[in-house]
Write a protein that binds this DNA or RNA. Sequence first.
DNA 1: TGATCTCCGATCAATTTGGTCGGACTAAGA
DNA 2: TCTTAGTCCGACCAAATTGATCGGAGATCA
Lengths: 157, 157
Amino acid sequence: MLKISKKADYALMALQHIASVQFGDVTPGRVVNTKEIAEEYNIPLELLAKVLQVLSKNGLIESHNGPKGGYLLARSARQITIAQIIESIEGPLAITDCSHEKEGEFCMQREHCNIRTPLLKIQDSIYQLLNNMTLGDMMGGTPLITIQSPSAQGVEQ
Amino acid sequence: MLKISKKADYALMALQHIASVQFGDVTPGRVVNTKEIAEEYNIPLELLAKVLQVLSKNGLIESHNGPKGGYLLARSARQITIAQIIESIEGPLAITDCSHEKEGEFCMQREHCNIRTPLLKIQDSIYQLLNNMTLGDMMGGTPLITIQSPSAQGVEQ
DNA sequence: TGATCTCCGATCAATTTGGTCGGACTAAGA
DNA sequence: TCTTAGTCCGACCAAATTGATCGGAGATCA
């Protein structure tokens, strides 16, 4: 049902938290450690740690070792898109198996497949959607989604 | 990675096939049986059968019993949206667990959850996208996707 | 009445995902 | 310089989901 994984959920929560501490009014620039986030949001510590490791390996956050260590955003919240976060954890967006098929792999249905092209179009649209929304958008009261359907109105709930 | 299931893939292929036979030039109105579709697209027969059963139970296609039986679209291809097909197989679109949370269920993170609202907005946009594209669009050379981002440019990484 | 088809439920195997454990390395503070 | 709190990293296990299979019941047409 087009679900994003819990790990990606945790990643989003953590990044949002780090961003709000780092750029907030109370303790700007403060480093945030794994335990703090895990307790705040009731996320299993070990699992969150692994998620943060991946995010740091992929260059979204910086890790600082040792006591008083923790994580910082690697760049501004406006420069980190939701697509980057999700793909960082889950790998490239692939709505259907054949969308990133390499040479050698083969899809049994490919021969007469009639849905590949339209599905790829849909995938592309979803990617656009996720890539147009940044961490920054998720925080402030700013408009969240700039991409809109010209024919779709009354969507604000 | 936001993947739709194989079953949903099969459903899309099958419906596309039924539609193209039913409204095609060669044998318009002809009933299509499970075996024909399974062989054409190399889909395991039993699995496809189950998919078609669900589609018919959900009113997307009509089944005709007995020999020379088979399936027909329950309404025109333009009146069947991709969202209807996918939801028929996979259940309601839920990008994140808490999006259709009932009373009684509870999300451990809910208390301080900071990402629920933006995620629901994204989910809504994806739904719009899928619901604006019909089976009919998937077939003809007609424009596939009407929803487009007015402001999305230059974000390609 | 028999062959051919859909219908339906139960079940199994494989993959993915959520979650855990243990040890190595790093840096601040006593 | 030694200790300790923290990150880092890889291997591992368990549960849930998904893909796929099997067997029989009920309809329909020749």
